[in-house]
Computed example of a mutant assay.
Amino acid sequence: MTSTPTATRRRPLFRRKSAIPGFGLTMGVTLSVLSLVVLIPLSAVAIKAAELSPAEFAAAAFSERAIAAYRLTFGAAFAAAVINGVFGVLTAWALVRYEFPGKSIVNAMVDLPFALPTAVAGIALATLYSPNGWVGQYLTPLGIKAAYNPLGVVIALTFIGLPFVVRTIEPVLRDLAADVEEAAASLGANRIQTVARVVLPALGPAWLTGFALAFARAVGEYGSVIFIAGNMPYQSEIAPLLIIIQLEQYEYAAAAAIALVMLSASFAMLFVINAIQAWARRIEG
């Protein structure tokens, strides 16, 4: 029996060098920046809210006015995310699958909410949808009041959230070759069956990601909403505005309590959506 040469013997395993040069340094910088920008400010909110006793916290964070603001904020954000989830898919489909005159202009307009200051967007939307605005003057005779009520909040949040869904779905649609749809059609599937059983399942994780981004962005929106919402307590007052009001009254702990409730609800929503995405990836795998 021949012995194995020393050169071919198994060597002890050593730690492999990282493919990224300076991994320790870059990871340290990353964690430091995340701590300064994200973790420390969020911790400060919790610490400031902890100055209140449980009874004071409940009185500030779960007052009737605060609950009405939560209901409007999260309800309008969810409604806007659903609307963007539907029309965002249609917009991305048109931009990826078809060529038409002015496509580059439409493509640039999708990114307009990213570049436009939120206050400018709010003023523009209020001008358009007010009772005497370009669009609102035609809605008023129909009994539809689009501005200065909860509907105006949904309109503003839909405006600022659309790009998140479109830009998240576009790369997936580009990777989804048209041959897949043609193969489904050759097997006897009609257009509805092709969309329902081939296209939508492939877009599912990306759609959930875009939905989560649009929802999270809408929950924290302030500038574009206050100009079109009307800001009436118990009716059209959003939670970020209520936080600003508390800060203007030097009620910093109460403002932190409301912010902590919103932060917790947002984290819970994102956790649920990430869990659904992980489950969808396991199903696909």
Rank of each mutant, 00 (worst) to 15 (best):
G204A: 15
A147R: 08
A214Q: 10
S18E: 12
E248W: 02
A69F: 02
T168S: 14
L36C: 11
L241D: 00
F14D: 11
Y250F: 15
I67H: 00
E237Q: 13
M1N: 04
V135Q: 00
V272W: 08
I192Q: 05
R16G: 15
D175T: 07
I258E: 09
S35D: 12
L116S: 09
A206V: 05
F215K: 01
E170P: 03
S63M: 02
V219E: 10
P205W: 07
M109L: 12
S63D: 05
L142G: 02
A61M: 09
S3A: 12
A265H: 02
Q137F: 01
I144M: 02
I283K: 09
S266F: 03
F159E: 09
L270V: 11
D111Y: 00
V199S: 11
G136A: 10
L31G: 01
V86S: 02
A44G: 13
W279D: 15
V172R: 11
A60D: 13
R71G: 00
V29R: 03
I160P: 07
A189W: 04
E284F: 12
A55K: 14
F267C: 06
F62L: 14
A202E: 15
L116G: 10
A196R: 14
A254G: 12
V86K: 01
I83S: 04
A177Q: 08
F87W: 03
R282C: 02
K103W: 13
M232K: 09
L39E: 03
I123D: 06
A206C: 06
V199C: 06
A68W: 00
P201W: 08
I276W: 15
A253E: 09
G102P: 07
A275S: 14
P101D: 05
V82C: 09
F215N: 06
G188I: 04
F57V: 11
A178R: 06
F57S: 11
A79D: 03
D111K: 02
K17E: 14
V219F: 01
G75D: 01
R9A: 14
A265N: 04
L151P: 06
Y129K: 09
A115C: 07
S264W: 03
R217L: 10
A66C: 11
S18I: 11
R16Y: 00
L13M: 05
I228D: 11
Y70R: 00
L208A: 06
D111A: 12
T118A: 13
G230I: 14
E56T: 02
I105L: 09
A212P: 09
P117A: 12
F215W: 15
Y252I: 07
V198E: 09
A212N: 08
M262V: 06
D111H: 04
I40W: 10
V96A: 04
Q277M: 14
M269T: 06
S224R: 02
A66V: 10
E221C: 03
K17V: 10
F14Q: 15
V195H: 04
L151E: 06
A212S: 14
V165C: 03
F267N: 01
S32N: 08
L139M: 13
F14T: 12
T118S: 13
P233M: 05
G188V: 05
V198R: 01
A253I: 00
G204E: 12
I228W: 08
V180I: 03
E170M: 07
Y129E: 07
N190S: 10
I40R: 09
V106A: 11
P131C: 05
E251M: 07
V154D: 10
M1K: 04
K48N: 15
S130W: 01
A259Q: 00
E51T: 09
